[in-house]
Amino acid sequence: MQRMTRAQQQQQTKEMLFTAAMEQITKFGFEKTSINSITEAAGFSKGAFFSNFENKYDLLLQLTEKLKDEERTLLKSSLNINDKKHTISTNGLNAYFDHIKNNTACVILDIEMQLIASRDPQFKSFYYQFQQENNKALGEIICKVFAFKGVKPSLSPESLAQIFIALTEGLLLQNVDNPGKQIKAILEALIEKDNKNLK
């Protein structure tokens, strides 16, 4: 069996710290989760933590960014987008909407970040930039769904992303059984509205 390189070992350590942090934060909240509790749950020393993160806020930002990036990647791959032919996989889109109910941990982390940003002006600037980048990337993917239907959205990609995120977070926090079904219905209604405006 081939030994892991130093970079691979560090990445594995980071992933284990991410997993421990996600479990601790979703269970106890960000404020009550300590660096000690994260490292103990992951089975590492505090030195391992500070080799990967500047502080607890840095971990939260990196973890949320990782989860959102994974979510965008999943959505993009589910759609099987072909920009040249302007096609997407409708089955993939339906599968993605079914998957949304499994996204509770990411939503809780994002809510934690929003709460911190509302109290900490310095963190707010980091969070705002992070949200802008995420909204732009997610909005561009959502616009592909409109384009597939032959419709140009009346809202900006960022606004579409904000609606999508707000719906997802709100429905998951309300413990709705099938949030994807409602989000899909609203997305279809927006597409239908803009389609009628084109005629």
Rank of each mutant, 00 (worst) to 15 (best):
Ala166Cys: 07
Lys46Gln: 12
Ala21Asn: 06
Phe50Trp: 13
Glu40Asp: 12
Lys144Thr: 05
Gln2Asp: 13
Ile108Leu: 10
Leu79Ala: 08
Phe50Gln: 04
Asn91Pro: 03
Ser89Leu: 06
Ser34Arg: 02
Lys32Ser: 10
Thr13Gln: 06
Ile163Asp: 01
Leu60Val: 01
Glu70Leu: 00
Ile100Pro: 04
Pro157Tyr: 07
Met4Arg: 12
Ala117Val: 01
Leu109Asp: 00
Asn175Lys: 15
Gln131Ser: 01
Ile186Ala: 09
Leu63Glu: 04
Lys181Asn: 08
Thr104Asn: 14
Gln24Thr: 11
Glu15Met: 08
Ala166Asn: 11
Gln62Ile: 01
Gly180Ser: 03
Ser159Met: 14
Leu67Tyr: 11
Lys14Val: 05
Lys196Arg: 15
Gln8Glu: 15
Leu93Tyr: 06
Asp177Cys: 03
Glu54Ala: 13
Ala95Pro: 00
Ala41Asn: 04
Lys56Met: 02
Phe130Leu: 12
Val107Leu: 01
Ser156Leu: 12
Gly43Pro: 09
Met1Gly: 12
Glu169Ile: 10
Val107His: 02
Glu140Ile: 09
Ser77Tyr: 11
Leu74Trp: 09
Glu140His: 08
Thr39Pro: 03
Glu192Thr: 09
Ile88Asp: 02
Thr26Leu: 04
Arg3Ser: 08
Thr13Ser: 01
Leu17Arg: 02
Phe97Lys: 03
Glu192Ser: 03
Val107Arg: 00
Gly92Ala: 10
Lys56Glu: 01
Glu188His: 06
Ile163Phe: 08
Leu173Pro: 02
Leu63Thr: 05
Lys193Gln: 13
Glu23Lys: 15
Thr104Met: 15
Phe148Glu: 11
Phe148Pro: 11
His99Val: 00
Gln174Val: 00
Glu54Ile: 13
Lys152Ile: 10
Gln24Val: 02
Glu70Trp: 08
Asn52Tyr: 08
Asp69His: 11
Gln129Asn: 03
Ile116Phe: 04
